[in-house]
């Protein structure tokens, strides 16, 4: 069964295509955006797609919410379990987002920027400063040069404050 057939013939799969699209949008956001907050937004979209997937799984066509009604027999319920699970997932998602945003705040404080390429450059410079204190592993072991060791600046401008 080719993809095209799957797309055209099997009705009811449009939800999944929507979910996939959503997921791809989210991932694209994470991959392509340099700004850290935008990445977090992408992440959120991605998480939403996962949540939607679960919701879709639980859906039974014609079913109602899984509420036990007095006296009603043979009621078609949607599967409640995925919905319940998603409550947990949503909590997790919120926690993640909160943490991520808190981190971006700290990063903004420490570096003054939230662009990842800029941050990478800064980090590389710090790495290199550190590496400069170290002779290269394969350089012939000679007499170590007489280097003065500058105090490595630790923790940028925001050392010591609480989370």
């Amino acid at each position: 069964m080719s993809l095209l057939e799957a797309l055209l013939v099997q009705r009811g799969l449009w939800v999944y295509w929507a979910i996939i699209t959503l997921m791809m949008i989210g991932l694209y956001g994470v991959i392509a955006r340099d700004h850290l907050v935008k990445k977090v937004m992408g992440l959120n979209v991605f998480q939403s797609s996962a949540i939607l997937l679960y919701v879709a799984i639980g859906k039974v066509r014609g079913g109602t919410a899984a509420i036990l009604l007095e006296g009603e027999e043979n009621v078609l319920y949607s599967n409640p379990l995925p919905h319940v699970l998603m409550l947990t997932a949503i909590v997790v998602g919120i926690a993640t987002t909160a943490l991520a945003l808190a981190l971006t705040v700290r990063i903004q404080e420490a570096y003054g920027t939230l662009e990842e390429d800029e941050l990478a450059r800064l980090r590389v410079r710090e790495d290199e400063e550190e590496a400069a204190l170290d002779p290269h592993p394969f350089d012939p072991p000679g007499e170590p040069e007489d280097v003065e060791y500058p105090e490595v600046k630790v923790g940028g401008g925001a050392g010591g404050a609480g989370v």
Binding site: L103, A110, R123, G155, V163
Partner: peptide, 22 residues
């Protein structure tokens, strides 16, 4: 991880967060 004293810890944590969440 973000508690590390070096400010690079923040980026490290963030990066891990994104990856971990995905």
């Amino acid at each position: 991880i973000a508690l590390g004293r070096d400010r690079r810890a923040l980026m490290a944590s963030y990066s891990y967060l994104i990856m971990g969440t995905i």
